[in-house]
Every structure is written in C-alpha cells, then in structure tokens.
C-alpha cells in the first residue's frame, strides 16, 4: 500500500478490510449496548421500565452472540487462537494508520451554501 489513494493497488483486499472493520465496530457497539442497558437497569425502579429493559438486555446479549459467532466463522475474530488475533490486530492497526495518513479530502468540503434553495431557484 502507498499513500496515493487513487492508486488501484490500494484497492487490493479492501472488501475484507472494510468488512472486518465494520464487523468489529458492530461487535463493540453491541457490547457497549449490553453494558449500558445493564447499568440502566440497576438505576430503574419502575416495573414497566425494568421489564422493557430486561427484554432488550436479553435481546442485546443474543445479538452480541450472533455477531461473535459470525465473526468467528468468517475468521475475522479469533478468541481461541490469540496469535492469529494478534496478527489481525496489528495488521488492521497498520492499514488504518496508513489510511489516516492519506490526504483523502484535499478540497474544501464545506457544501453549506448549496442547501439554501432548490435547483429551480438557482438563478
């Protein structure tokens, strides 16, 4: 990989890179969600709120389990082979640092001025 974001060489393996990244994001969100609901449950006293949160908690745990299983089956996540996971962690960190160092959006991105009227109104 090089720093030219238009070089087609950089599109090698991009789908798997994207999928692993988004799946990891999804997993962390599911985890965070379960923990947030658990904390909320310990702070709520109304029976109906508790019932609702408890259902969502169990649902969240089930979702977390599904994501984990999917990621393990796709070999995106290796909870049992830590050396594999280590390589994956280091590689995705390396790749993401490379993306972070690219100059992806060189132009001024402020498109604010074009949202104040419909195309017909442009004179």
């Amino acid at each position: 990989m090089n720093n030219d974001h238009l070089d087609p060489i950089n599109s090698l393996n991009v789908p798997e890179l994207a999928d692993t990244t988004f799946a990891m994001d999804f997993l962390l969100r599911a985890k965070e969600g379960v923990r947030n609901i658990a904390v909320a449950l310990t702070e709520s006293a109304s029976p109906d709120v508790r019932a609702l949160l408890r259902n969502q908690l169990l649902q969240g745990i089930a979702m977390h389990q599904e994501i984990t299983e999917l990621m393990v089956s796709k070999k995106w996540f290796h909870p049992y082979e830590l050396s594999e996971q280590y390589q994956l962690d280091q590689l995705s960190a390396k790749n993401t640092i490379m993306i972070g160092n690219m100059n992806l959006f060189p132009a001024d991105m402020n498109r604010k001025g074009i949202f104040d009227r419909t195309p017909d109104e442009h004179k």
């Binding site: 379960v34 923990r35 609901i37 658990a38 310990t42 745990i61 977390h64 389990q65 984990t68 299983e69």
Partner: peptide
C-alpha cells in the same frame, strides 16, 4: 449486575455465556 454484564459480553463459548 454490572459485573455480569461485562462478563457476558466477554464470553463466546455458548456454555459459559
């Protein structure tokens, strides 16, 4: 409750979970 919520989201083996 909070500790268990942490533990559940760290486990992957169905039996443990």
């Amino acid at each position: 409750v909070r500790n268990y919520a942490m533990a559940v989201t760290e486990s992957g083996t169905p039996e443990v979970k």
